[in-house]
Amino acid sequence: MVPVTYYLTLSALMFTLGIVGVVIRRNAIVVFMCIELMLNAVNLSFVALSRLVGNLDGQIAVFFVMVVAAAEAAVGLAIIISLFRSAKSVETSDANQLNG
């Protein structure tokens, strides 16, 4: 049986990588993917803690995080496409105009 702390440490590392990615990457789609990375880190710790506590509520929370992530993907990618249409690029630094 792997101790729950291992899973939590792994989740912390993954979350940190996600944060660093959001900070250093400038492609909007990659930034979006780093956010997914962070969401997954949180999901992992939810499931690990659900086992630690001994009930299923944590897993239900993960289910709803997935729902939100799916909705976020649909809207986020639509925003990125419309950004590409107006700025001809998906770099976050090119999206610097208020009118499009």
Binding site: V67, A70, A71, A74, V75, L77, A78, I79, S82
Partner: peptide, 15 residues
Amino acid sequence: LIMAAVVGAVMLAKR
């Protein structure tokens, strides 16, 4: 929420 996301995505990505 998903319903809203679907409508929103269509509205945003439409030319």
